[in-house]
Design a protein around this nucleic acid. Sequence first.
RNA 1: AGGAACGUAGCUCAGUUGGUUAGAGCAUCGCCUCGACAAGGCGAGGGUCGUCGGUUCGAAUCCGACCGUUCCUACCA
Length: 922
Amino acid sequence: MTPMDKYDPKTVEGSWYKRWEAAGYFAPQGNGRPFSIAIPPPNVTGTLHMGHAFQHSLVDSIIRRQRMLGDKTHWQMGTDHAGISTQLIVSEQLARENLKPMDIGREAFIDRAWQWKAESEGTISTQLRRMGASLNWQTERFTLDEGLSRAVLEVFIRLYEDGLIYRGKRLVNWDPVLETSISDLEVVSEEENGHLWHFKYPLENNQGQFLVVATTRPETMLGDTAVAVHPDDVRYRHLIGQNILLPLTDRVIPIIGDHYVDQDFGSGCVKITPAHDFNDYEVGQRHQLPVINIMNTNASLNDNTPEPFAGMDRYEARQAIIKAMQELGLLADTEDHKMMVPRGEKSGVPVEPLLSDQWFVKIKPLADPAIKAVESGDIEFIPKQAENIYFAWMRDIRDWCISRQQWWGHRIPAWYDPDGNIYVGASEEAVREAAGLAPDLQLSQDEDVLDTWFSSALWTFSTLGWPDQTEALDTFHSTDIMVTGHDIISFWVSRMIMMSLRFMHEVPFKKVYIHGLVVDSEGQKMSKSKGNGLDPMDIIDGISAEQLVLKRSSNLLQQRVREKIEKSTRKEFPDGISAYGTDALRFTFYAIATRTRSMRFDLKRVEGYRNFCNKLWNAANFVFMNTSDHDLSGPSSDSIADTWIQITFDKAAHTVNQAMETYRFDLAAKAIYEFIWDEFCDWYLELCKATLLSDKSSDEQKTAARVQLLATLEKILRLTHPFMPFITEEIWQKIPAGMRQHETIMLAPYPQAGQQDETANNKVTDDINWLKQVIGAVRNTRGEMDISPARPIPLIFYNGTTEDKRRLNAYTELLSAIARPESVTWLNTGEALPVANVQLIGEMQLLVPLAGLIDKHAELQRLAKELDRLANDIKRSSGKLTNPNFINKAPEDVVFKEKLKLADFEQALKELTLQKNRISDL
RNA sequence: AGGAACGUAGCUCAGUUGGUUAGAGCAUCGCCUCGACAAGGCGAGGGUCGUCGGUUCGAAUCCGACCGUUCCUACCA
């Protein structure tokens, strides 16, 4: 057979995915146990980022392994419509044509959005395919498609009828750029520098007397409806019930007493603006204060404010008010002040609490069972710690504002008549009929759409056909596990649990695996705006430094930031990124998937695993070179190495399966890496060479080695396939057809450890470990003494046991092939010894005579160091053993082991001291 | 302010109920083109496990305090 071409991920990964998909391997099949996972639906118009790539790599390994274990697996594919993001993008597209959404109207806008969806939806699907994700594409869904929209409608109507959805005027987080309400979770607060302005508010009845209030947002004063003091505050409590003349307006507002006020902060007086502050709103409710909304939806001041402020932008108004107050002599003080500024996650501008009509889900009745489901263990979080995030959120949950003032999404199925009566139903006809409305009664549908998460919350069952009772729903719900990040627990996990319990009467998933965040090599969160993100596709395909700089900085608005990013990018990736391939990238993800909350992503790691692919590739090449053109059907006889590699493989398979059962992807990856590289390549292949290249081995032995080489390689490939799907399939297809019973490795059985005969196994592994130790000792001597591996050296075995002698006799051939001795001599205890370098293997000494080979000085130095170490060990060990407390209280086996250890140390010390004396006598 | 997590080799991280000489990869140093592989082989150096105290015969591991880093939640007008 001709050697395989050099490992190149591009050619290896080229066509397999298409073939798998075309063959229908991703669809559920067989009669095994159903096993299902629903993908957290990515944004249909989005692209795959590192977090996605990581997450889906984890899921794919789970799915592929379960499939190979014979389960009927279903990995639900689908995307969501990402209401706000998509609306924003389409609006930006319009802006480039100097158009506003209003200019083209709702219908045309939605058309544009669908158009954009059609254009961009292929991107993330293609990227998922490049990652090798074995998703079931045949049942792909989209949150706005017909079936899922029907589920949304059904849920909305039923919740409304059950009194769990209501409409009300409430204070919500308002994004003045997007002009919509947004969720608490979509607000990010960061500390910023601001000011605290102290205003003097004149008392109504005491001319010339003032209360001083402090504010970070002067513009809201026009909406003040009270000043609050603490009811116990001796400075002010007598003023409670009196009034303030609110400056710049003609309004008179009361002084109220409320425990909300902190007497020690500022002046101890607080202005109360119920329409523009969440806390003030509550104070206002308690005291029945009027709620005066002073802002328009774009955060300019409205007609409830006096001239000249009406119509001004909020920040323009702020300056104007400060100036006006100053001119009135009512500005007492201005000081610098650090404060948290809440900004809209998507728009980046400060959000406003705004009073508006919104739809809400009454959440408590949904949350209570959802909390119980986790408390009772019906749903298990992995790691367990993550439950805290869930409970913290759920136990303090507030009604969920589900209406968004947008066009792209599920329109709220509510209609209003001219009197403002609300009718909820599947369609206008439906509500007319249900309510028996006169045909000529004017009805208008609510303009708003639902929060995207409302539809995502139904994901695990809506994608399977609900509200229809489909076979898929019956088979695959509840799903087995949800894999997601901790940042999404409150957004989504909790809402799925609530909705599934309510409508399916079962949990949406039995387990939730919460993974950490992929961060850059500096520990920073990867983000577009920071320009520190990596595109998984660039790691797979490679990218030049120039293109990478361009890609990272093109989205950045500020020149300064752009330059900074360019500099750091050029520093970190001076030569760009080379093409590492999907398999290496995936393996990196498994290796870093530890239990920590964040994982630094380092390309060096990817490089290491690309090298690992190369190693596997070359090992396969070796196996094929040595097995093709040979008849493997003849009689065979396993050598110790052949038996050993089978045992060792079984152990590795056991470790991998165990790790996967506990979702320790890192341990699974480690076990695979170590078995392939350290055991199969470094030892087994070398031992096979000894057998295959020697005239002394029989045909039976050679056949056994060849069979075992192929069989082990084949098992390795199956064990590794869930993690590195491409390279394993590529190599597996080169295995002689007789050794594989399936058309694809994807459907071949996953290796599991069989029954083990511990005693027999230990005998084998002990022998191989002995051999490894002897070879290690020889290599060590060569290394320490700078003896070329090419130069044969005489080996003398001294003071060995009969077991040592048996092993030496049995494995001289193997030993010789790897250690390359000039001669092998066995000396019995008491026989005369040459002056030599000595290494201890248990009680046995391995000697390499000094003559002409070894530097006396260097050897003495080495011995001194060794003796030093032994002296230390003896001191510690005997210290323990002379401690009566240790002898009495420690378990027997621990004491016994310690005694053995000490004996070994002392024996070694004795031998090496003798040796040292002999050499220094030279 | 409240809650949580983390701190192990130069770097990134393992270390599962306390019990070997605390491990791996990368980086470093030395040797090696020996018929799979230089994207390689062989060998070596490198850690008072953040600090202090406690529990224990025994602590990287359990407890407390402190220092440092990070995240989450809520915010004071």
